[in-house]
Computed example of a mutant assay.
Amino acid sequence: MLDRRNLLAGLATTVALAACGRGGGADAQVLRVGSQKGGTKSLMLASGVLDGAPYKVEWSEFPAAQNLLEALGSSAVDLGLVGDAPFQFAYQAGSPIKAVGAQRTQTRLAGALSILVPARSPVHDGKGLKGKRIATTRGSVGHYLVLRSLIASGLRSEDVRIVFLSPSDSRAALQSGAVDAWSTWMPYVAAAQAEGDRIVVDGKDFVQGYGFEVAPESAIASKREQLSDFLRREAKALEWAKGHVDQYGAVLAKETGLPPQIARATAEKNVRLRVPIDNGVIKDQQVVLSTFQKFGEVKSARSLDNAFELNV
């Protein structure tokens, strides 16, 4: 049996690491990239696409999109990949950020985003969550999944209690019984399943599968060339990952400290490709915005047209 504390401990630490050398944040030849645990950094290192890049990449790692978006909003990093729900949540809150690139899962992979309960829980579906306490991170894809699940199950916001916690605190709360369920994403889903937790709501039917590379307006103005080059290299890395799951998983395990089998499961479910930001993509985001607005989680309505930078 894997040790629960050790398994999840490494997933929620924010660390700053330099890849390809170090440089000052104001240096135009340094691109500061934020990565969620098990995300962009592992992919780019595994694929080797940064070899020969005409700039240095300075990595910072974050446990969740919320933390990464805070860093982007304050211009502490220049670029970072987040899901569509957390991007829209932060953008509507007034953050000076824009999406400069888009990715989308090519197939709806089971379990990549899920609501989990302990093995012995009496809950077996979304309707069974009525009256339960659900942990997730505010503004995350997990938060969005809870709201979509409520709609699908015919429940109201007052029918459940959403408890906003970090991923590591959510896991601890589920283990202690302080909450009844946890809405989260990979690699946290795989790690929790390895410890016996089970999925009661699978997000594959409730999300559109978009991820956005997001940059602060300051970086778009000063580092457009580096951003564009990184996005081109990242597109190559995504293509590479489709046919190299084992190599990707091995690097993922090394970078995150996850057991090899969990890292591979994460790599297998992390199959995305770059897609152009077009009117269809922007229109799809109205579903995300409308969902947050329906439950009163978003009060403003900044123009979606201004949330995307199309020429990077």
Rank of each mutant, 00 (worst) to 15 (best):
V201N: 13
F87N: 07
G249K: 12
P63L: 03
A173W: 00
P122V: 02
A26M: 07
V312M: 09
L68V: 04
Q247C: 10
Q88L: 15
D159M: 06
A76M: 06
L145G: 01
I151F: 00
E268Y: 12
G139C: 04
Q29V: 04
S290Y: 13
L147T: 00
A135Q: 01
S183W: 03
S228P: 14
R274Y: 13
Y91N: 08
V117R: 03
K127Y: 01
K127D: 05
G296Y: 07
G196C: 14
L150R: 02
K37C: 08
Q88Y: 09
G154E: 03
N279K: 13
Y248H: 12
S157N: 08
D84Q: 13
V214M: 10
W59P: 06
V82H: 01
K269T: 13
A250H: 11
R272W: 15
A53C: 06
V287A: 13
S153A: 10
S183T: 05
V123P: 01
L304F: 08
L11K: 02
E217V: 14
G111L: 06
L147W: 00
G131L: 02
D27M: 02
V288G: 08
G209L: 05
E309W: 09
G39N: 05
L45Q: 11
L50I: 04
L147M: 03
S35N: 03
D180F: 01
T105M: 11
D278R: 11
L8E: 03
S75N: 13
